[in-house]
Design a protein around this nucleic acid. Structure first.
Lengths: 153, 153
DNA sequence: TCACATTTAATTGTTCGCAATTGAATGTGC
DNA sequence: GCACATTCAATTGCGAACAATTAAATGTGA
């Protein structure tokens, strides 16, 4: 009997991996975002940082990192690029010299208006109702938080 | 009236972005996988390539790329690292000299047995029933495929 | 057959992402 | 007040990820 697909191999089949589904979906999102963000002069991780700053300005690097689950090794060079693009300003905190505070420039604030077109385009590309997307988002966030809980232990 | 949170800003709020949910979940998976894959001497993308090869061996780089949605710019150096680790062998196809065929070595085949422990650990970490995970996976794959359909147009 | 397009990997350059280390600033216990 | 640990950002090194280009092999049409 030729074993075409062994039942014992099912857990190792690529199409059965939820992590690959998530991984490949993240890349698919990235590719959809790319042309939209090119118009803003941002990469996707840079866009995420700008989303954080548009909500609240003048925050230390660490706060941004906690929000996005990224560390200074990723954020420091990224923020320097945003500074080179005149979107943010980096200044040492006077109260605590260890911290670097990230503030939006006028250009950084202004970019928010151009960015409003992005979520609409993404919604159209996902070809899905808002309520469905919200439900999926909540499930994925719940899974992510359970995974992160395992790591911190 | 001080606008703490404007309704017009809702589409730009980080916590409303499904893409960020997916993006951060992918990173969370990566962090859970890391200690498990360290024992196999693999990174997560390398593990994905091995999953493909464990299903079918002796395939051109392009086939692996189509399966994983990756191009040669990513795969060529990755496969060279797997070759340096004696897990795969890269040989030009004799029928079509443009293709490079990737075959598992004996070590590469053997690693499959050690890898069987990985999906179990992931299942435990996700703290979720198999049926729930399968349902989520199918939803995410469907979303990914709709996004990819938009790109190829 | 010969010019031309297509296919396939490899290469180059830029940007993440993270582990590990460094160094400066701050906090704590004695 | 002083040794000590902690916190925070920056740095270094490695491995993806991808756009753009290159180069070789193959296929196609006149």
């Amino acid at each position: 009997m030729p074993r075409k697909t062994s039942a014992a191999d099912a857990p190792l089949r690529l199409d059965n991996q939820i992590c690959f589904a998530v991984y490949s979906a993240a890349h698919a999102f990235n590719r959809v975002y790319k042309p939209l963000l090119d118009r803003l002069g941002l990469t996707y991780p840079q866009y995420l940082v700008m989303l954080v700053l548009w909500e609240r300005d003048d925050v230390p690097v660490k706060d941004i990192g906690e929000r996005l689950f990224l560390d200074s090794g990723t954020l420091t060079p990224l923020l320097k690029r945003l500074e080179a693009a005149h979107l943010v300003k980096r200044t040492r905190s006077s109260e605590d010299e260890r911290q670097v505070l990230i503030a939006l420039t006028a250009q950084g604030h202004a970019l928010k208006e151009k960015a409003r077109a992005v979520p609409q385009s993404i919604l159209a590309a996902s070809d899905c109702s808002v309520s469905e997307l919200v439900a999926m988002k909540d499930e994925i966030v719940a899974l992510r938080d359970r995974l992160n809980a395992v790591i911190g232990e």
